[in-house]
Write a protein that binds this DNA or RNA. Structure first.
Lengths: 143, 143
DNA sequence: TTTATTTAAGACTTTATACTCTTAAATCTA
DNA sequence: TAGATTTAAGAGTATAAAGTCTTAAATAAA
């Protein structure tokens, strides 16, 4: 469904958003990697994409790191997925046909197209803000 | 979402089911590969799994090939996906946590778990029989 | 201005998936 | 029985994704 790079990106963004609620500092990638038990090298690569796409702001040097470049409510899971994996999952035919559409459908288009649309809306509507609120409410949440 | 091997498997199974409605012969893998524009070598490999898992019956020699080992109504898209890709897509945490559950959820468990369940039911309920009926009704369907 | 800290960028290695080829085994037909 | 046909099985290759490392650039603080 999602690449591991994309999963890591989402976890990192949730971590950053959670931390940024309290203090507006830059958060070092090293700290994120350590806390989420991810490879610093790999995570650095992934976050560079989110910086390029305008979801993170980065700063070099001591006390440098990354921070959200937009309000939490303006960053959705869809945005992160699009940035890292692309939007194939939300647009592509389940059987891989490039020209599959309502007019020229594949054998399962009628089943899959609405489901794909549903997934799109779900991820588009789920923002970092909403996730943070969910985390606050519950205890025992894995990050 | 699905590997290309799995997509090819589904297309092949739909092709076999469609053909088998009329004649109950074994269908050669070469014929399937030619008609669906797939590599014979690759398709052979894929179909071997479906034979092992009891969804196809195979026969060697002249006029040999493969045919469905069960009624079309008893083979679902879920069965094919499970056989080729495994059921990770229907069971795994979207963020990749192995121990994610209702009791110890990840940050998006509440959003993803019901959706995963929905996808499971959709693919479980969609049988080759149903797909065939859909194909009969429409023209212009890509196989 | 030197040193430490931190991200950026690109090269590199490893692993998994996709894909191909060869040989063996089963079966039919002549 | 010999030859043709077809799947089975396993080895081998190519490509893409995952993961690591090195060097450069920016910045802060001593």
């Amino acid at each position: 469904m999602l690449t591991t790079a994309c999963k890591d990106a989402i976890r990192a963004m949730i971590y950053i958003a959670k931390k940024q609620k309290n203090i507006d500092n830059f958060i070092s990638i090293k700290e994120i990697a350590n806390n989420l038990d991810l490879s610093f090298y790999f995570l650095s690569k992934i976050l560079q994409k989110l910086v390029k796409d305008g979801f993170l702001e980065s700063y070099r040097g001591p006390n440098g790191g990354v921070k959200l470049a937009k309000p939490m409510g303006d960053i959705s899971l869809y945005d992160i997925i699009l940035s890292i994996d692309g939007d194939d999952v939300f647009t592509q035919c389940i059987l891989g046909f490039k020209e599959c559409s309502d007019i020229k459908p594949c054998a399962v288009h009628e089943k899959w197209a609405p489901e794909r649309e549903r997934l799109y809306n779900l991820f588009k509507d789920t923002t970092l803000e909403e996730i943070e609120e969910e985390i606050e409410k519950k205890i025992n949440i894995k990050l």
